[in-house]
Amino acid sequence: MSDPLLDDLELIAAYKAGSESAARKLFDRYCEKLMRLARRRIGQRMASRIDPEDAVQSAFRTFFARVKSDQFTFEGESDLFKLLVRLTVNKTLRQIAHHRAAKRDPGRETGQGPDEEGLLDHLTADEPPPEVQVALLEEFERFLEQLPDFDRKVLGMKFEGYTTSEIAAKLGSYDRKIRRVFERAAAVAEGRAAVGDE
């Protein structure tokens, strides 16, 4: 099996020499991971406004344009992926900021209170580097895969910023049952319970 860095560098060199198939291979190699990252960043509240594919395609357009003019250099094993992650996060955050501008903010449309807005702003003020975000998202997805379908839905919605009451209403459940899902998931994460324990 060939070295992935060497493959990336060969594909970049081939693209710079005019190969569109090299560009397609690079896109196919990283597209799905970047789509997952963009989807998580956008969350369900913004999903009707922002298409994660737009953010990823925009990131690749910028990447290919700047690679063509030698604006990037790649040294480390994961430099290319880190760069694509950074571009995708920036494009996604720009689109979110655009849609959160006063009249377009879906949080205002759903009656999100000022205290909750302040908390979300506080939680997202100091963001970890993009590569850390990807690692966390992948770890979170692996954790979710261990859980029953209902628990996965509940935790996915919580991760996207929904309150306990909103989750209960959307899933046709009740607050106490949703809180039990959080308790169960915490116990599983800490190794105090096995998956499926009630």
Rank of each mutant, 00 (worst) to 15 (best):
D151K: 12
A22R: 02
E127I: 05
V181L: 02
V181P: 02
Q112R: 14
G107I: 01
R184V: 00
F81Q: 11
G111C: 09
F63P: 09
A185C: 00
D126V: 04
V56T: 02
E75M: 09
A135H: 07
R66C: 03
M35Y: 02
D54T: 10
K153H: 13
F159Q: 14
V134M: 15
T110F: 00
G172V: 00
Y174Q: 14
M157W: 11
K158Q: 06
R86F: 00
K91D: 10
E138W: 08
G118N: 04
E160V: 04
D8S: 02
S58N: 10
A187C: 08
D51R: 09
R24E: 14
F64R: 12
Q44I: 01
D121L: 14
V67I: 12
L137F: 00
A38K: 04
R94H: 14
L80W: 06
F143E: 12
A13R: 14
Y15A: 05
H99R: 04
I178V: 15
Q133T: 08
R100D: 13
A194F: 14
V195P: 11
K177L: 01
K158H: 08
L137D: 09
S48C: 10
F159S: 15
E145V: 09
R108T: 15
D175N: 14
T163S: 11
R61E: 14
L9I: 11
E139M: 08
K25R: 14
E20D: 13
Q95R: 11
P52D: 01
F60W: 07
V134F: 08
F74K: 13
I167A: 01
R41P: 00
A185N: 00
Q112D: 12
L34C: 01
V181I: 08
E190P: 09
E131K: 13
A186Y: 02
A65S: 14
I96L: 12
F72A: 07
R192F: 07
E198D: 09
K91A: 12
I50C: 03
P106A: 11
V134C: 08
L26V: 06
K16W: 01
T92R: 06
T88E: 11
Q95N: 06
K25D: 12
A22E: 01
D51S: 03
S69E: 08
T88W: 08
F143I: 10
K158Y: 01
I12H: 04
R24I: 03
T62W: 03
L9D: 05
V181R: 02
R179P: 04
T163K: 08
E10P: 00
D197R: 05
A194L: 15
E139F: 09
K158R: 10
